[in-house]
Simulated assay, not measured.
Amino acid sequence: MAKRSWLALFLCAALVFTVVGCSSATTKKGGFAAGLVTDTGGLNDESFNQSAWEGLEKAKKDYGVDIKALESKSDDDYIPNLTKFAREGRNITWAIGYKFDKAIPDIANQFPDAKFGIVDSDLGGKIPKNVTAVTFKEEEGSFLVGVIAGLTTKTNKVGFIGGVTSPLIKKFEVGYIAGVKAVNPKATVSVAYAESFADAVKGRSLAQSMYNNGADIIFHAAGGTGKGLFDEVKTREKGKYWAIGVDRDQSNLAPDHTLTSMVKRVDVAVYNVTKELKDGKLKPGQHVVMGLKENGISMADKHVSPDVEKKVEEYKQKIISGQLKVPSTEAELANFKP
């Protein structure tokens, strides 16, 4: 009996090892697999995490890519989540958000044979050979929605709600202010930061304060925190109070109160890089920059008047042609002349 028990145990262990080993091998040698790790905003943030996931979902639909996501509940989850996908042997693992700028280089060095992508950071120019960094010219799209806000406001008071204070979100803020001022020098722009990308309650509180103080249009760049803006604007009079969405078309959050959305095509970037790697055409270690000229930024206008749309198109062409350089920092804004 003892010998049979040991034999059974040995066979069981061998079977488990075989199954696990085959599973890992399938990921590495079988179908193409991609992983996505969100920041603390979560997968359903109606913003950049969700847009990135939509890019992978399209890759799954078009090419049968095996996709999986892990949501980070705190910054401490970044390295464990990235490590999990690297150990699974996924062909590429995406890190969504600039807050991964320390975790990605560490993991990339630990797993030199794995491929990674990061959105919203160029890693200070020190991009590992197995990483593709994608950034956007957020200031360009923000400038255009600023033009819309500046020409649409009836109170000459508009607002901006940011997530976490950072150079990235400052690009949204600065571009927006530049756009407003370019067409309406009399307008004032109220600015507030929630210091979170996942606090809808704080987002609503900030929006309520701005609206109560006379702002009739608010643009946000706050991830999940921005949901609070839409919760608040829906309680306001139609046609009088507006919200401007970000990253994706957010009109579904408040259909009658969403003036426009500044769409940052994170989905396109994630899809294109994943496809290029699958096709063997990607050269990792590169920095990909997407702006209006590269179709990385677009508008999702819902309630913008034709006259305003015409003005926006004029500015868009000036930016694409290089005739107009939109400021991306406060220092550049101080010297900006449209």
Rank of each mutant, 00 (worst) to 15 (best):
I161N: 06
V246M: 11
V189G: 00
G150K: 11
R265Y: 15
E232I: 12
H257N: 15
V246Q: 11
V233H: 07
I244L: 13
K240C: 04
K278M: 15
T260F: 09
T153R: 01
R265T: 04
W242A: 09
A222F: 09
T188W: 02
S190R: 14
G146C: 09
G175M: 02
G175Y: 00
Y241Q: 03
G162A: 10
Y241W: 13
V147Y: 14
Y241A: 03
L206P: 02
K171L: 04
I169P: 08
S142D: 07
F136H: 00
I218P: 06
W242D: 07
L259P: 01
I217Q: 05
S261E: 10
K238D: 11
A243T: 06
T153W: 02
T135Y: 01
T135L: 02
A133V: 06
V174S: 04
V273Q: 14
V174P: 05
N212T: 15
L259G: 02
L277F: 03
I169K: 01
Y176Q: 12
P255L: 08
Q208E: 15
V268S: 08
G146D: 05
G175N: 01
A182I: 10
E140A: 01
Y176C: 14
R265D: 09
E139D: 12
N212G: 15
N156V: 04
S261C: 08
G214Y: 12
K275L: 14
L151S: 12
V189P: 00
V266A: 13
V263H: 01
V263Y: 01
L151F: 02
G150I: 12
F230L: 06
D279Y: 04
A243L: 07
A200I: 10
G150N: 12
K238S: 12
G228P: 09
I217S: 10
T188E: 15
A269L: 06
E138W: 00
T235S: 13
L253R: 06
D279E: 15
T225M: 11
G228F: 09
V270W: 10
V158Q: 08
E276I: 01
E140F: 00
V263N: 00
K202A: 14
T135A: 01
T188P: 00
I148L: 02
G162P: 14
L151Q: 10
G214A: 09
D279K: 13
T260R: 05
A207Y: 05
K238W: 04
E138D: 06
I218A: 09
N184W: 07
G179R: 10
A149R: 01
